[in-house]
Design a protein around this nucleic acid. Structure first.
Lengths: 233, 233
DNA sequence: TTGATTTATATGTCTGCACATTATAGTCTG
DNA sequence: CAGACTATAATGTGCAGACATATAAATCAA
């Protein structure tokens, strides 16, 4: 019965984590109720609740009213990724960020894209392609389509002065987004741009953002070979 | 002054989100204090706190004592990935999971690995390589090293009957982990195993888990071409 | 002017209480 | 015995108040 030093919610959480990690409470087993734990730790029930709620959010505990709280059977580790502005990502690596616009023009989007976005076929969208550099070496290729219907004044933005990535974050709010990560071989054009051999394995992020069911932008970020996205559990 | 219908913390959170999304509160601007908002919404300060704390955790708000709360300037979108047991991941796709052990043997680990794990050089570790299938097609290659020092009884586990992935999740608790995602070209061996052309771009997850500073296992998961990891913001 | 100290303020957390919500388990009834 | 109803037990949420803590801003001293 090792009572945590402090009866703060962090102390209680640490103690609960210890009991789970050290198999004092086995996966799938029922743990004492909030009220009982509050008595044991000599604190208010709300404090125990605070500690346990976070653990439930993290997937370590399964909680149901009346049924009680159980240690999760399959603790799916939950990973949190922070996706920053590209400029900041480069600068955080201690490299100098540079950006160059390749193309910016209104074009009819492909059927694959419009259908995925729920737009009328042959909708005109702004197609912006650009390259981000870290210390003068290609870092990633940004291939973006912007919904002109939702953001008509984007036509007049000079994307050689500010990256589309940054302009959108500051000017186009979104309420939801779909992201997918994958690996792709570099085609001839990308290989040339990224200064990589053709067929090189590239880390790719595809992202579509929405503002209440209306698509804002669809982007594909293709990173130069060697890129790693790191995080902790 | 649209007061949210309910003065539950969710209602308040929704209203705050609306004000941010609709640019009523601009990025970087100071928002009213908890006390003021509590008065405005006619609720307790704790309720406002609950709503705002979650938004701060999500990176939408920056909060500092005395300085107050500001709308985040660079709303780094925070993505949450659930990394399930491989078997469950395959089954969730509606495919049949199958598993085959390639190799399981105690070997001295490479210097690169031992130094990364903080183990003595030439430490013996259990090297387990296996292949996971979805509907009889190669899904991913699991290349794992297990710390025999920490888990000596793992020598006697039959990894042809249970996957190392699953056994470890159920038997080896960990307190921290480092994960990195990248893209790699398939070498001859992997290409053969995954039934892919040599050089094909593979999505790769490297993960090291720790139990209080002691390494538990290091694993590289190489997914067959075409794999995408999806999530939402 | 500059550096140290104090003060005021916003957030962070805890308490004790109350009621709401949900789902289990038991009971009653036809 | 089956199905409907009811009591109960756990979590979910809210409130008012209190104190803790960090820190920006103001004040004071050299």
């Amino acid at each position: 019965m090792t009572i945590a030093d402090t009866n703060s919610w962090r102390g209680i959480q640490a103690e609960l984590l210890r009991r789970i990690n050290e198999r004092e409470w086995l996966p799938g087993s029922l743990v004492p109720s909030e009220a009982d734990l509050a008595i044991e730790f000599g604190c208010a029930r709300a404090t125990v609740n605070r500690a346990m709620r976070e653990m439930a959010d993290a997937g370590l505990l399964d909680r149901k009213r009346k049924a009680g709280t159980r240690v999760a059977l399959h603790p799916t580790s939950r990973v949190v990724l922070d996706i920053p502005i590209i400029r900041l990502e480069v600068e955080q690596r201690g490299a100098e960020w540079r950006y160059s616009l390749i193309e910016s023009s209104a074009e009819p989007a492909s059927l694959a894209l419009t259908s995925r976005l729920g737009l009328p076929r042959d909708s005109e969208m702004l197609h912006v392609r650009s390259l981000h550099y870290a210390d003068n070496r290609p870092f990633l290729h940004e291939d973006r389509w912007i919904n002109l219907d939702l953001l008509p004044h984007v036509r007049s933005v000079d994307f050689s002065a500010i990256s589309a990535n940054e302009w959108l974050i500051q000017n186009a709010p979104y309420t939801a987004g779909d992201i997918s990560f994958s690996a792709m071989g570099a085609d001839a054009g990308l290989a040339d741009l990224l200064d990589a051999p053709e067929g090189a394995a590239l880390f790719v992020i595809d992202r579509i953002t929405w503002d209440k069911d209306r698509p804002v932008t669809a982007v594909r970020l293709s990173y130069a070979p060697g890129y790693r996205m790191n995080t902790k559990i």
